[in-house]
Design a protein around this nucleic acid. Structure first.
Length: 446
RNA sequence: GCCCCCAUCGUCCAGCGGCCUAGGACGCCUGCCUUUCACGCAGGUAACACGGGUUCGAAUCCCGUUGGGGGUGCCA
C-alpha cells in the first residue's frame, strides 16, 4: 500500500527553516516510496485564518521545489466536520461541556459559550511505535482532560489534526519532536472515533548554538530571508536534508533527485541538530560553482538589477557576463556578487578603508607602484599577459613579488584587496583610460 | 514540579557486538598552487558524557547517574 503523508503548517506569514525541513522529509518520504504528499493548512485559530499568511508559505514551498500532490486543504473550511465529531463524542459521554472556570457542565450537545473537554481515561497507558524513536508510552494519569472545542465555537488543533488525518487517510505522520507529547491525546481521539492510527515519525529538532529550538526571536529562521540573501533552493534543501539524516555513501553535496533515491525515513536519527550557517554556505557555494554560465546569469539577475549598488543605466550585461566567468567560483551566495563586480559600474570604486589601509598605508611602496604602473600601463598592449608582465616588471624594480606589487593597483582600480583576477578584469572589462584615471586618483589621495 | 525524548570530533553525518589504534564532511591550522581572495591538491587538529552490568568481546545491548532539550494553553 502506498503511503500518504502530509505537511500541516500553521500559517505564520513565513516559512520557518524547521518547518521547511519537516516539509522536505515528508516530501522525500513520499517521493522515495511513491506515496502521496498532501498539504494542509492548520488555521483553526481565527487569528491565523488569513490568506496573506498562507500565500508566502506556499510561495516558499514552491521556491524550494517541494510540490504537493493534494491540497492545500484548509482546516478552517472543515469546521462542520469537526463539530460533528465533537458532538458525537459529547453524546457518547467521551467528552463533556466545560465553562470558563473549567467546571464540568451537564449536557449532551454543544452549547454556545461553553468549551468541550475530552474525558481522559484513568489508569491507562497509551503506547506507540515511533519510526525514529522506537517504542514510546505515556500513562493517561499524567494527561489532563484537554480542550477539543473552544467556547467561541472553533475546534482545537489536536481535534482537527486527528480528524483530518483520519479523513484524509494519512498513513505516516512525519513531524517535529516538539509534537511528540501530544501524540497520546491524538491517539485517544483516533481510537474514540474508530479511526486507524497513522505511523508516527518524530524528527529531531533543529537547534541554535545554545542548543535551544530555533526561535523566530533569536535566530534567522525565515526561508524567505535566506532566499533574499542569495541562497539557492537546491542548496537549501540539500543542507536541510543533511540535518538528521546522511547519505549512505557520504556524498553530501548533491542534487535532490539523488537524495530521493537514497532517502529512507527509518535512517533518520534522534539527536537534535545544530543549524550551522558555515556548512550551509559551503553547500551553497558548491551548488553555485556548479551552475552553467547562462544559468548563473539568470539566477543572479535580481542581485544586479534595480537593487544593485550602482546606477541601473551604467550596468553593462556583456562586461558583467565576462566578469561572471572570473568570479563565479569565488562566491558563496548570489548576494556576494555585487561587491565583486561593482567597480565596473560605479563612477569610482567604493572606498573600503580596510583595503586602503592594507595596500596603500601598510603595504610596501604604494606610491612607487602606482607611479610605475601609470607609466607602463599607458602604452603596453591591453591584454592580460602584457598587463601582468608590465606590472611584474615595475614590482621587480622595487624588489616586490607580484602578490605585493599588484595590491595598490588592485585597490586603486577595484577599491578592494579581494576581488577578481586583476589583469583579466582590466584587460577584458575595462578601458585603458579609466584604469589610468583611477590609478591617478588613488595616487592623489595617498 | 510532573511527563516525554536525547547523548560519537567545536558542528553535521557514519558506525546498528568483533572489520574501530572510531570513518567522511564543515570549521580551524600547515604546506603546495598562485595576480588578491577563493577554488583545487596534500597533510594536521579533534569525539564514543560518567558509573555499573550482560558478553569470550561493547561506541554498539541493559540499568543508573549526570547533562541537554521538548511538552505541560479555550496557540499550532
Amino acid at each position: 500500500m502506498s503511503c500518504r503523508v502530509r505537511f500541516a503548517p500553521s500559517p505564520t506569514g513565513y516559512l520557518h527553516v524547521g518547518s521547511a525541513r519537516t516539509a522536505l522529509f515528508n516530501w522525500l518520504h513520499a517521493r522515495a516510496t511513491g506515496g502521496t504528499y498532501v498539504l494542509r493548512i492548520e488555521d483553526t485559530d481565527a487569528e491565523r485564518n488569513r490568506s496573506d499568511l498562507t500565500d508566502s508559505l506556499l510561495a516558499e514551498l514552491e521556491w524550494l521545489g517541494l510540490d504537493w500532490d493534494e491540497g492545500p486543504y484548509f482546516q478552517s473550511e472543515r469546521r462542520d466536520r469537526h463539530r460533528e465529531v465533537v458532538e458525537g463524542l459529547l453524546e457518547r459521554g467521551l467528552a463533556y461541556l466545560c465553562d470558563a472556570d473549567n467546571n464540568e457542565v451537564d449536557g449532551m450537545s454543544l452549547v454556545d459559550g461553553l468549551a468541550v473537554r475530552f474525558r481522559m481515561p484513568a489508569g491507562g497507558t497509551v503506547a506507540f511505535d515511533d519510526v525514529v524513536r522506537g517504542e514510546v508510552s505515556f500513562a493517561t494519569d499524567d494527561l489532563e482532560d484537554f480542550v477539543i472545542w473552544r467556547s467561541n465555537g472553533s475546534p482545537m488543533f489536536l481535534l482537527a489534526n486527528a480528524v483530518d488525518d483520519a479523513d484524509m487517510g494519512i498513513t505516516d505522520a512525519i513531524r517535529g519532536e516538539d509534537l511528540l507529547s501530544g501524540v497520546p491525546k491524538v491517539l485517544l481521539l483516533l481510537d474514540a472515533i474508530g479511526a486507524p492510527r497513522p505511523t508516527y515519525a518524530h524528527l529531531p529538532l533543529l537547534v541554535n548554538e545554545q542548543r535551544k529550538k530555533l526561535s523566530k526571536r533569536r535566530d534567522d529562521v525565515s526561508i524567505g530571508d535566506y532566499r533574499a540573501r542569495g541562497y539557492l533552493p537546491e542548496a537549501m534543501v540539500n543542507y536541510l536534508a543533511l540535518l538528521g539524516w546522511g547519505p549512505p555513501d557520504d556524498v553530501e553535496v548533491r542534487p535532490l533527485d539523488e537524495i530521493v533515491d537514497l532517502f529512507r525515513i527509518e535512517d533518520v536519527n534522534k539527536a537534535a541538530a545544530f543549524f550551522d550557517l558555515k556548512k550551509l554556505e559551503h553547500v551553497n557555494a558548491t551548488h553555485l560553482r556548479a551552475l552553467a554560465h547562462d544559468e548563473f546569469l539568470e539566477r543572479v539577475a535580481p542581485w544586479v538589477g534595480d537593487e544593485a549598488p550602482w546606477p541601473a543605466e551604467r550596468f553593462d550585461p556583456d562586461r558583467f557576463s565576462t566578469m561572471v566567468g572570473l568570479v563565479q567560483e569565488k562566491l558563496r551566495t548570489l548576494g556576494d556578487t555585487p561587491r565583486f563586480v561593482d567597480f565596473l559600474f560605479l563612477d569610482d570604486p567604493v572606498d573600503d578603508p580596510d583595503s586602503w589601509e592594507k595596500a596603500m598605508v601598510k603595504g610596501p611602496s604604494a606610491a612607487e607602484m602606482l607611479d610605475g604602473a601609470a607609466t607602463v600601463l599607458a602604452d603596453c598592449p591591453w591584454e592580460t599577459e602584457a598587463l601582468l608582465a608590465a606590472v611584474s616588471e615595475v614590482g621587480e624594480g622595487l624588489g616586490l613579488k607580484l602578490g605585493k606589487a599588484q595590491a595598490p593597483i588592485r585597490v586603486a582600480v577595484t577599491g578592494r584587496t579581494v576581488g577578481p583576477p586583476l589583469f583579466e578584469a582590466m584587460a577584458e572589462c575595462m578601458e585603458r583610460d579609466e584604469v589610468l584615471r583611477r590609478i591617478a586618483r588613488a595616487r592623489a589621495r595617498l
